[in-house]
């Protein structure tokens, strides 16, 4: 589904990612974990084709990722994705016109689910509601890859809860592959199948959440604590 083949990305002299290889399967929820600046965002942008590797290849559904991958990849950046003067409805119309897999019906359903009103101006929304709206836009598409960059950062527990519930209720978990980049692990651990750990652009490891518990008796967060202490 998604393959990183010896991927390196340099920003100037700074190493974004160095020589990373892994491959992801369809229908799983992955956590991309690591402290800030570990290369998580870069990895997501590479999959979305918004950044190209300095060396190596990123393969998405058999093709080298480029900007056109957006047809099959949903990417939610950490920063604001909205035009400030827009109403929620404007944003939905815009997405509908750009992405063939966008469903307005599903968007309305999701707005209901998240308690958002179409006529609200985006600049008047609270931070939490913006986070919710981002997810509405993402989940209204059917693309097979869903990339979320720090979807919980700075949001209160209620909003986090509604985002997790929204994800679980609306993703097509047999067909869609979800990658969540985050440094806040504890709350989403039960959500994840597998975890990829990065640190300073280096690949630390990839493992199954349940296996780690079965074999080592460790939760991800404990594993991370031990690894980063070393």
């Amino acid at each position: 589904m998604i393959d990183f083949r010896s991927v390196s990305k340099k920003y100037g002299r700074h190493n974004g990612l160095s020589n990373i290889s892994f491959s992801l399967e369809q229908g799983k929820i992955y956590g991309l974990l690591g402290p800030n600046g570990s290369g998580k965002s870069t990895a997501l942008k590479l999959i979305a084709g918004l950044v190209s590797p300095t060396s190596g290849q990123v393969i998405v559904k058999g093709k080298e990722a480029n900007r056109k991958a957006a047809a099959d990849v949903i990417y939610l950046t950490e920063v604001d994705i909205f035009y400030p003067s827009f109403k929620i409805k404007d944003m939905i119309d815009y997405y509908d016109s750009q992405f063939q897999d966008f469903s307005v019906i599903k968007a309305r359903e999701l707005l209901d689910f998240m308690n958002l009103e179409e006529d609200r101006k985006i600049k008047n929304l609270s931070k939490g509601n913006r986070g919710r709206l981002k997810l509405v836009l993402a989940l209204s598409r059917q693309a097979s890859v869903l990339l979320l960059d720090e979807p919980f950062s700075g949001l209160d527990p209620m909003v986090r809860d509604s985002i997790v519930k929204g994800l679980l209720s609306y993703i097509d978990f047999e067909k869609q592959t979800v990658i969540i980049a985050t440094h806040e692990i504890d709350e989403i651990e039960p959500l994840l199948d597998d975890v990829i750990a990065l640190s300073d652009g280096e690949f630390l490891g990839m493992f199954n959440v349940e296996e780690l518990r079965e074999k080592e008796g460790l939760s991800i967060i404990e594993w991370m604590r031990r690894t980063f202490k070393e």
Binding site: R67, A71, T77, V79, I81, Y83, Q98, Q100
Partner: peptide, 13 residues
């Protein structure tokens, strides 16, 4: 404006 929102280029067109 587009450079600020990062959403412009995430587009299949």
């Amino acid at each position: 404006i587009e450079a600020k929102t990062q959403t412009w280029l995430h587009n299949p067109n």
